[in-house]
Amino acid sequence: MGKVLILNQDYSALTICSVQKAFILVYLNKADIVSVSSEGEIRTVTRTFPRPSVIRLHKYVSLPYKGVILSRQNIFRRDGHECQYCGATADLTLDHVLPRSRGGKSSWTNLVTACKTCNSKKGDLTPEEAGMPLKRKPIKPSFIMFLRDFSGKIEKEWEMFLGKKNKDETVWNE
């Protein structure tokens, strides 16, 4: 049915939720509508309500950790589900840019998506030593980048809170 951007009391992006959940927060007077969606209205048997696109909570929600968790799936998302050496989209695995056997750690800046063929070909070498340059330098995504790039369709009303992605921008580079 659609998605809604939830802002904290200070207008910082918090998360994305369903239209139903956002409507309940507004209806229970726990949030205000900041921006209305152009995709229609919410109708009940007796009433019609504006469909929210962005809402702001009345009370500030403190989040102890507001970052993107390092996980296999999030590395794949960051890299656009394609091998960072050849661009393949099948048989994907993770590769340590600096191999673990040579002191490489499992971190955002040392892990990339690689197909099994490239991972085997690179072996225990660095990309430079193997003559296999990376398509993009691995970076740690910010929370805002994660919300912006993986929530599916970004509403125009969200851009002022999440930032606008340039049309020629690669998946994770700002």
Score class of each variant (00 low, 15 high):
residue 158 W to A: 00
residue 133 P to D: 05
residue 27 Y to A: 14
residue 78 R to Y: 08
residue 77 R to N: 14
residue 131 G to I: 01
residue 31 A to M: 08
residue 98 L to F: 05
residue 56 R to F: 05
residue 56 R to S: 04
residue 84 Q to G: 10
residue 79 D to P: 04
residue 143 F to E: 06
residue 154 I to D: 10
residue 145 M to A: 15
residue 96 H to N: 09
residue 69 I to Y: 10
residue 101 S to Y: 10
residue 164 K to F: 13
residue 112 V to Q: 03
residue 99 P to H: 03
residue 67 G to S: 05
residue 106 S to M: 11
residue 82 E to N: 11
residue 54 V to A: 07
residue 72 R to Y: 00
residue 165 K to D: 04
residue 119 N to Y: 01
residue 167 K to L: 15
residue 61 V to A: 09
residue 31 A to V: 01
residue 170 T to F: 06
residue 11 Y to G: 04
residue 162 L to E: 14
residue 48 T to A: 15
residue 102 R to G: 03
residue 166 N to Q: 14
residue 113 T to G: 02
residue 141 P to L: 05
residue 51 R to Q: 09
residue 120 S to Y: 07
residue 21 K to H: 14
residue 52 P to Y: 05
residue 126 T to K: 06
residue 60 Y to P: 09
residue 139 I to D: 06
residue 84 Q to F: 01
residue 61 V to Q: 15
residue 154 I to A: 12
residue 27 Y to L: 15
residue 109 T to N: 11
residue 22 A to P: 09
residue 36 V to E: 02
residue 25 L to T: 04
residue 17 C to I: 14
residue 114 A to E: 01
residue 20 Q to M: 15
residue 105 K to S: 14
residue 55 I to D: 01
residue 97 V to R: 12
residue 153 K to Y: 14
residue 105 K to A: 11
residue 74 N to S: 06
residue 91 D to L: 13
residue 79 D to I: 05
residue 138 P to W: 00
residue 104 G to E: 04
residue 90 A to D: 12
residue 134 L to Q: 05
residue 79 D to N: 03
residue 148 R to Q: 10
residue 95 D to A: 03
